[in-house]
Amino acid sequence: MIGVLKSMATTLKHALDGSTFTVEYPDVAPEVSPRFRGVHKFSQERCIWCRQCENVCPNDTIQIVQDDQRNGEQYNLHIGQCVYCRLCEEVCPVDAILLTENFEFTADTKDEFIYNKEQLKNVPWYKDIDPLESREPDRGAWIGEGEGEVDYQ
């Protein structure tokens, strides 16, 4: 009987201290780590159309269309299918694709989740967090020395 009472006392303590663990989501934005992997942002200005991201993607989320001169024409990304493994960002030699902290996206149909390069470019930064800042340490392994200031817009 003591144990039962102890259980009840424990829950009562939680009820009376008035603290809550959940947040009111759209009003109170949840904290997102700088490393968080969300919707991609793509910069055509930087892309060299090496197609490494397309190659490394484990489930064919990225589709690149080139003309016969190997100039890039389309860059499509199915964010509804993406597993957010960040391998594309990891292999990109020029930081042309980047995963922002933005996790909020909706659509009425699956088709609308296929983002083309324009849509990908317009993906907003989440709370002005620049993800590259927090991810810098590992990039040397992939692209040698970084080249200083990077402007994604």
């Binding site: 829950t11 009562l12 939680h14 009820a15 008035g18 603290s19 809550t20 663990f21 959940t22 009111e24």
Partner: peptide, 8 residues
């Protein structure tokens, strides 16, 4: 129930 489980 929410009060007992720290929710809103």
């Amino acid at each position: 129930t929410a009060a007992f489980t720290d929710r809103i």
